Computed example of a mutant assay.
Amino acid sequence: MIRSKSKLKRSVRFLLNILLRNNINKINHIGENTYISKDCYFGSPKNIIIGENCSINNQCWIIGSGGIEIKNNVLIAPRVAFFTSNHNYQEKTVLIREQGYTFKKITIEDDVWIGYGATILSGVTLHEGCVVAAGAVVVKDVPPYTIVGGVPAKEISKRI
């Protein structure tokens, strides 16, 4: 009996932590018929715009410091991460943590599918109809109707 109470307390604490931290209610805009899993995390949500008919699945991290625009009919698998900032590191006589950050917007155009565990880095545009394979790390723009995968992500093929 004590075990189940303890487990229940941990579960309630976990859920409350997610609901209080994910900031979903502070997102700039969420379009109609869009699904967002409750265990996603949104950093700087005021800089995030999500279009219509999108699906954002479990445990995604969407850090919008530099701005993120997700257009319509976008599918985002579980554990996808979006990072719109980078540490500056060019000056070797100054600690990296003291050099500040660079912020660049991420844009996801219509009809894009991002596979499980992919990472999308700052300044990237995923153009219309492209597909990002599971586990890919996208560091540059992906042309329309192109399938990319790998680390760093490279073209695998075109959608025909």
Rank of each mutant, 00 (worst) to 15 (best):
S85M: 08
N88S: 06
N57Q: 15
H127L: 03
V94C: 08
K71E: 04
N57C: 11
A153C: 12
I62E: 13
T107V: 14
T84G: 04
R10N: 14
G31N: 08
D39Y: 12
N25G: 01
I63M: 15
K154N: 05
Y101P: 02
S122H: 13
L75Y: 02
S65L: 12
T102K: 12
E91Y: 06
G31E: 13
A134E: 10
R13Q: 13
I108Q: 00
F14S: 07
I48G: 09
Y35I: 09
C40A: 12
V12G: 00
V132P: 01
W113S: 12
K7N: 07
E52M: 08
D111N: 15
V142W: 11
I18F: 01
F14Y: 08
A153D: 09
F82P: 02
S157K: 15
G129A: 13
E128Q: 14
R13H: 12
V142L: 10
L16A: 09
K158T: 01
T119M: 15
V132L: 03
T102W: 00
C60N: 05
A136T: 07
S6T: 12
L19I: 02
E69S: 09
I96Q: 06
H29A: 11
K158G: 00
N17S: 11
A153R: 03
R13I: 09
S65R: 13
V74P: 04
M1H: 09
L121V: 07
P152F: 15
F83V: 15
C130V: 09
F42W: 14
M1L: 10
A118E: 07
I108H: 01
G149V: 06
A118V: 02
T119L: 11
V112G: 02
K5C: 13
S157Q: 13
N22C: 03
S37D: 15
R3M: 05
F14P: 00
I156M: 14
T107Q: 01
T107C: 03
K38A: 08
G51A: 04
K92V: 00
T34S: 10
G100S: 02
G31L: 13
T146G: 04
V80C: 10
G150T: 10
G51K: 10
I48S: 07
F82L: 14
I106K: 06
I160Q: 14
N88H: 08
E69D: 11
V112N: 02
K154E: 12
K38Q: 08
F42P: 03
G51Y: 09
L126P: 03
T146L: 05
T34F: 04
S55M: 07
P78Y: 14
V139L: 09
W113R: 01
Q90I: 01
K9T: 08
P78V: 08
W61L: 15
N72C: 04
L16T: 09
A133C: 03
D141V: 11
V12D: 00
H127M: 04
I63W: 15
I56V: 12
K46M: 05
L121G: 00
A77L: 03
N33C: 07
K9I: 15
V138D: 05
V112L: 11
I36M: 11
K92Y: 12
V132M: 03
I108S: 05
S37Q: 12
Q90T: 03
I108C: 03
R79G: 00
F82I: 04
S11A: 11
I76H: 12
P143S: 15
Q99V: 01
N47T: 02
H87W: 03
W113A: 05
Q99H: 01
R79H: 10
K104T: 02
S122M: 13
F14C: 06
